[in-house]
Simulated scan of single mutants.
Amino acid sequence: MRAENDTQISEFLLLGISEDPRLQPLIFGFFLSMYLVTILGNLLIILAMISEPHLHTPMYFLLSNLSFVDICFTSTTVPKMLLNIRTKSKVITYENCITQMHFFLLFSVLDNFLLVVMAYDRFVAIRHPLHYTVIMSPQLCVLLVLVSWMVSALHSVIQSLIALRLSFCAHSEIPHFFCELNQVIHHACSDTFLNDVVIYSASVLLVCFPLAGILYSYSKIISSICAISSAQGKYKAFSTCVSHLSVVSLFYCTVLGVYFSSAVTPNSHSTATASVMYSVVTPMLNPFIYSLRNKDIHSALKRLF
C-alpha cells in the first residue's frame, strides 16, 4: 500500500534545536563555544598524559583514551550543525546522514565501554592494591581498549547496515540537530521491525549490562572503603574514585533522562534539546571534572605550559 510513496531518498532535513531564525545566532555562538572548550580541554588532558612519564599509568592511559573519544564524539555532530546554521541550510545528504549516525554510535558506545573499563581499574586499585600493577598491566589495558573499539565498531556497522535496507519517504524532516538512530529509523516508510529488535537488544547488551557492571564495581569499592579504619584512609580511597563516579553519573543520568523523557513527551524538539546534555555538555565537562581536584594533572599542565 505504501510502496508507491517510497523513494530512493537523496537527503534529509535536520530541523535542529529551534526553527526560530532569531535564535540561530545565539545557538551558533553557544555551540561553537562549547565545541572549542571541549576540544581544548580534552586535548590538554591528552598532551599532559603524553608529556609526563609519571602519568603513564593505567588510570591516566584510560583517561587519555576517554578524552580522545570525547573529541571524536562531539566532532561527529557539532561541526555539521554549525555549518547548517552558518549557511542557513538544513540539508544533510543520505550518505552523510548514515555516516554521521555510524560514527555517533561508534563513539557513544565506546565512551560507555571506557567508563566500564575505568570502573574496573578503580575496583582493582581499591580492592587489590598490592596486586594492582600486576593485574592492570599495560598489555591488559591495551587489550581492554582494543576490545572496546572492536565491539563498538561491530555494533555501529550492524546498525548502519540494517538502516541501509530501509526505504524513506520523500521530504523526510528529522526534528534533531544530528542523525540520531531512532529518529532516522522512525522516518522510514518500510517495515522497521528488525531495526527495532536490534536497537532494543543492543540497548540491553551495551547499556544495561555495562551499567550493571559499573554499579557492581562501585558497590564493592564502597564496601572496601567502609572497611578502612582511618578517616584519612577512607578519604584518600574515595577521592581516587569521585571524579570517575561523577562522570559516570553525568553520562548515564543524561542518557537515560533523554530516552525516558522522549518516551513520555512526544515533542521531538525537546528531545533534541535534552540530547545536548550527553552529546555535547558531558564531553565538555569531563576534563574539568577529572582535573578539578587532581594535583598530578595540575602539575603536568603547569609544566606543559
Rank of each mutant, 00 (worst) to 15 (best):
S18N: 12
N84M: 08
H244K: 15
R127P: 01
K236P: 03
S89F: 05
Y35L: 11
C241V: 10
T192D: 15
G16W: 01
S262C: 06
I126C: 02
L143C: 05
R127M: 09
V69H: 02
L40S: 09
T254R: 03
E52F: 02
P129G: 04
I199F: 08
H176C: 09
L63S: 02
I126F: 04
K220I: 04
V281H: 14
T254Q: 13
S229W: 14
F238W: 13
H176P: 06
C226I: 05
M284E: 05
N65V: 07
M49Q: 03
P287D: 00
F238K: 04
A153Q: 11
S223D: 11
E95W: 09
V242E: 11
M81S: 06
T254S: 02
F177P: 08
F30T: 07
H186Q: 14
P79I: 00
C97G: 07
V145T: 08
T57N: 03
L154C: 11
F28R: 01
P283A: 02
F12Y: 00
A163T: 14
L250F: 12
F123P: 04
L83N: 06
F31W: 13
R303A: 11
H54N: 09
N42W: 00
S75N: 05
L211K: 06
I225Q: 01
Y200P: 00
C141K: 07
I98A: 10
L245H: 15
H298Q: 09
M150Y: 11
F113S: 10
D296L: 07
F31G: 13
L66M: 01
L166A: 09
T38F: 03
S239D: 14
I158R: 15
Y252G: 06
P21E: 05
K90A: 02
L40H: 10
D191I: 05
S75A: 07
V78Y: 00
V134Y: 08
M136N: 02
N5R: 12
L140V: 00
L205V: 04
T7G: 10
A3M: 10
I135V: 05
Y60V: 00
F123M: 04
L144P: 04
S156C: 04
I9T: 08
P175R: 07
V151E: 02
R165T: 10
L130W: 10
L63P: 01
L114N: 00
K234D: 08
N286Y: 12
C97Y: 05
R127I: 05
L115S: 06
L140R: 01
M136D: 01
T7V: 15
V147W: 03
G257W: 04
T273Y: 13
H128G: 05
N267Y: 15
D70K: 08
R127D: 10
L14V: 00
N65A: 09
I126S: 08
Y200C: 07
S291W: 02
D111S: 13
N65E: 14
L206N: 09
S160M: 00
M101Q: 02
P21Y: 03
V248P: 10
F305S: 12
S152R: 01
V247N: 13
S219F: 08
